[in-house]
């Protein structure tokens, strides 16, 4: 059964990091995985930068034609359509940030509708909104709700669930996940859209879960390794 994951959310919320986690995890389980870098917003910090590592893991990567070529021409290659008919098991769409980035998804609406209508197989599509309340314009339930409505409008897709990715990068504590939990609890209660995942590095994740938060707002736990984020000790290797 083919599984589509579409990750959307605010700029810098951690979509690419979590996309990589989902894809690498599936590849480890011997699934045939395709990743789609659909970011037409940001020339930096994108999947295409990790092409070598992604392909080394046996994952196929599709990305905008000039991604990481330091050319600001965000044109999408036609072979992205192949993911809707190919023989892969898992497809991960890593979408550009903010409502502007979600616009690039709109053109695939008929294809996603075909999945939802069961013309492929039912229940295979998860459109996930990544939220980090420590990022600008995500700190409160009101801000997340505002972003949500704009992203749904632009992407022409309905969001199935949230990913709590509360973090302060290298300084993350359980408190950041708790803030994400509080914000998303309110959003979930208002919209009826569930929290499907809670993501974080091992230590803060464990401490947060030890506090016995209500399991209905946790979903599946994703313990992630950081692939994308640069700290000052490794950015000279990758550039920005």
């Amino acid at each position: 059964m083919k599984q589509f994951y579409v990750l959307i959310g605010n700029f810098g919320s951690g979509k690419t990091e979590i996309s990589l986690h989902i894809a690498l995890d599936a590849a480890k389980r011997n699934k045939k995985v395709v990743m789609v870098d659909l970011d037409v917003i940001n020339p930096y910090f994108r999947l295409a930068e990790r092409k070598k590592e992604i392909e080394a893991a046996g994952i196929k990567l599709l990305h905008p034609n000039f991604a990481y070529a330091t050319v600001d021409v965000p044109s999408l290659p036609p072979d992205i359509y192949s993911v809707f008919i190919d023989k892969s098991d898992v497809v991960v769409f890593d979408v550009g940030g903010d409502p502007a980035g979600a616009t690039a998804l709109g053109q695939y609406k008929p294809n996603f509708e075909a999945i939802e209508a069961g013309q492929l197989e039912a229940g295979q599509l998860q459109v996930l909104c990544v939220v980090n309340p420590r990022r600008p314009f995500s700190a409160t339930a009101e801000l997340v709700l505002d972003m949500l409505s704009k992203i749904q409008l632009r992407s022409r897709l309905s969001i199935n669930g949230f990913i709590n990715n509360g973090n302060l990068s290298t300084e993350t504590t359980a408190e950041d996940l708790r803030l994400g939990y509080d914000v998303l609890k309110r959003v979930a209660d208002t919209t009826g859209i569930p929290v499907l995942y809670t993501a974080g590095r091992a230590a803060p994740l464990r401490e947060f879960l030890d506090g016995k938060p209500d399991a209905r707002y946790i979903g599946q736990v994703l313990q992630i390794t950081t692939y994308m984020h640069r700290d000052w000790d490794n950015f000279t290797r990758y550039g920005i």
Partner: peptide, 14 residues
């Protein structure tokens, strides 16, 4: 409280 910001965003807010 501390927030996770890009330099550009932080400069604008500052």
């Amino acid at each position: 409280a501390k927030n996770l910001m890009k330099g550009c965003e932080a400069i604008a807010e500052a």
